[in-house]
């Protein structure tokens, strides 16, 4: 065997080493993904009749999908930029010489340590119809609001998402801020740059790889917020909170694999497109500053 390996070309040997992980990736990613593509193009997994883009047409005409997609886009469009910008701002505030810095840092990181089920419980205690907030409002004569079935529901989930994710993003930004060469920022201030210009023209260049990473992370996390919403409000929440994952979950339950596969493919393509654009932007901004 060893003799055989020695005789084999190095390229073949390297493939041999890759085999275990390749098997894992093939089994859990590539094959299922290919299967999803196949499902999305056939009438059903048993008869396997090719129907072209019929499943996609059916999907786009589906009111539940439209609602779920628009809710998810709306949620990500609000939550993702907020998660990035607010965590960067927090990191910059904590970078400055302020008292109690480490306590603030721990405070913002603590939501990371709490399991999702407990987080959901806290927010239920706060926002339930009989929850703390309505109790406080009642003392001032304000009528109770069913928060999760109101127009505020979306904002509450955004707040929950931010509360959960800001700390980690902030730590990433703090590390990136700490890596910016101090002399460059000082040179810019001696050159006459205002603090805004110093941030935009010097610091931001160095932050751009982290900015990209945090943005992608926040985007993925914003798609994953379903977990919290599902635990808070169940299968069929208030229509403002009906997200793509609700749709997929429910479609899976009804065994409509074709529709589910088409939806999953659309989601994958959209995410790949967004991440691709982010990489192009980072390639331009981060050029020359990355060591």
């Amino acid at each position: 065997m060893i003799r055989m390996l020695r005789r084999a070309k190095p390229r073949a040997v390297s493939f041999l080493y890759l085999l275990p992980s390749l098997a894992g990736v093939l089994t859990f990613f590539i094959v299922p993904f290919a299967q999803i593509i196949r499902y999305s193009l056939v009438d059903n997994p048993i008869s396997n009749t090719y129907v072209g883009f019929d499943n996609f047409k059916r999907l786009f005409a589906n009111a539940a999908f439209q609602r779920a997609a628009s809710n998810t886009i709306r949620f990500s469009a609000i939550a993702m930029p907020l998660a990035v910008v607010l965590s960067l701002l927090l990191a910059m505030v904590l970078e400055a010489k302020i008292p109690g810095k480490s306590k603030f840092r721990t405070m913002f990181l603590s939501p990371m340590m709490v399991p999702v089920a407990s987080i959901v419980l806290i927010w239920q205690v706060l926002f339930d119809y009989n929850g703390v907030l309505n109790n406080v409002f009642a003392r001032f004569g304000v009528l109770p609001i069913d928060w999760f079935k109101s127009d505020y529901s979306h904002l509450i989930v955004v707040a929950l998402f931010l509360w959960k994710n800001l700390g980690y993003n902030m730590i990433l930004f703090m590390a990136a801020l700490g890596n910016i060469p101090k002399a460059l920022v000082e040179a810019a201030s001696v050159d006459g740059a205002s603090s805004f210009r110093r941030f935009w023209q010097i610091k931001f260049r160095f932050l751009s790889p982290t900015f990209l990473f945090v943005t992608i992370l926040s985007l993925i996390n914003s798609f994953k917020v379903f977990r919290e919403v599902y635990l808070l409000t169940g299968d069929y929440p208030y229509e403002d909170l009906y997200l793509l994952q609700h749709f997929m979950n429910n479609t899976f339950k009804s065994l409509d694999y074709q529709k589910l596969s088409a939806a999953a493919l659309i989601m994958a393509v959209v995410m790949a497109l967004i991440i691709g654009i982010l990489f192009i932007v980072d390639g331009r901004l981060g050029k020359d500053v990355e060591s």
């Binding site: 002399a183 460059l184 810019a188 001696v190 205002s194 020359d288 500053v289």
Partner: peptide, 30 residues
């Protein structure tokens, strides 16, 4: 920025994403 001084740093502190021309023009543009 308001002291009318210029400083040369040990590490040179040239802005890595700007050309030499832009490095030199930076303070003048401001």
């Amino acid at each position: 920025k308001d002291r009318n001084i210029a400083m040369v740093f040990q590490s040179y502190a040239l802005y890595p994403h700007m050309s030499v021309y832009k490095n030199m023009a930076f303070a003048l543009k401001i």
